[in-house]
Design a protein around this nucleic acid. Sequence first.
DNA 1: CCAAAAGTGTTGCAACTACACCCATGG
DNA 2: CCATGGGTGTAGTTGCAACACTTTTGG
Lengths: 231, 231
Amino acid sequence: MEAKWLPGISVDCVIFGFHENQLKVLLLKFSKTPVWALAGGFVGLEEDVDQAAQRILEERTGLTDIYLEQFYTFGDLERNYRATEEHRDVQTAMGLPEKEISWLSKRYITIGYYALVDYSKVQVNPSGMSDASEWMDVSALPKLFLDHNRIVIKALEALRQRLDDKLVAFELLGETFTMSELQMVYETILGKRLVRTNFQRKILSLEILHRIEKKYTGGAHKAPYLYRLKA
Amino acid sequence: MEAKWLPGISVDCVIFGFHENQLKVLLLKFSKTPVWALAGGFVGLEEDVDQAAQRILEERTGLTDIYLEQFYTFGDLERNYRATEEHRDVQTAMGLPEKEISWLSKRYITIGYYALVDYSKVQVNPSGMSDASEWMDVSALPKLFLDHNRIVIKALEALRQRLDDKLVAFELLGETFTMSELQMVYETILGKRLVRTNFQRKILSLEILHRIEKKYTGGAHKAPYLYRLKA
DNA sequence: CCAAAAGTGTTGCAACTACACCCATGG
DNA sequence: CCATGGGTGTAGTTGCAACACTTTTGG
């Protein structure tokens, strides 16, 4: 391990997805522990940090070409894997001998990325060190590993900022989507309700969407149109 | 050196100042080389990254309580001190034996901060590894060490973004300043001219300034008022 | 016909832009 | 007086919020 990775540095990815009108984060559970954490990993000696983040995401989600953005680097002194009961279990999960405390007790600096993925396309791929993974609602996360709760909060703030200038919301949806699905994405990220008519007008005035056809819902009443990003 | 600092990690500070109606960056020259670089340093084993940045700034400028903001972490594979002619000289300037290539050829990840300081208060304090320092115009920088030019550009972009929501411009001025000085700060950071009357109205409507008295310029014509931040 | 989806119209507010214009003052 | 600093007024624009209203369409 020591030979392959840059020491003292990790990458943590806040993977956002959208499902059932909720903003979700993909979390992993360390094997044989109750400890949930963000998808994280290390940086190879011959690898850009951006590449490392992309690789970690591919390993966990099976997706390539993911929308990814670095948002903050966490370097507090307290960021270490001190040998508490919990972290000893994590160490075991990582396949490290219990005696090798040196690696875990070292202090880590982590570079935070957030990813926006199409929930429906993700094939969760548990790695060796985790035995479960789950999409959890951003607004109802359990206590996570280390300061990962704080990292999620920072990621969400960064995402909110980007929402206006970059057309980032579409990354959370599939190829096609209805207008109300899009509106839901905006509403849950911004944390407030929007007026339907004004929202539609604004989005359509950008002239980046192509309307296709009706969506078959099976339900009674008129089916909504489907849209797709132009070009 | 190896015992005191986190390995493979550095901090680089883009120190902005304002002088003669120009936005300046404080640069340091490595001893006995023509190589200019940002104020940089390393992170102590028992030190937060934020603390490290603050310490580096204090060492270089003699100021405490500096406005400081982390903006990006640069982790490209190419970020290393490969033993080119130039970098060998830098290594010597750092007081490292020429044989110890290992340290220099290692790959570095640097955490970028930008600082806003009161130009007039800075007492430049050359450290051991630099024999000169200079305030240079942001728009006319020479080729800097490694990718430091890119770091400055990224810092400026981040600063521009923050300019609106955080009242950051005042950090570049002294206790008191005239309205046109303030306007100049905005104009040089944003890179465009602003209409005087509208600018004044906007700033004054924030009700965060206190007008004091006339400024004595010695020049002919009416002297401008001085302002100070409230509270 | 009903209910949901989709779109139009209008009103008002707030912020910003661009200018025209006036007052103050030091020499 | 005049050049510079400091300030007011106002007309036009844009974007947004709120809400009323119409049209479309699947069952």
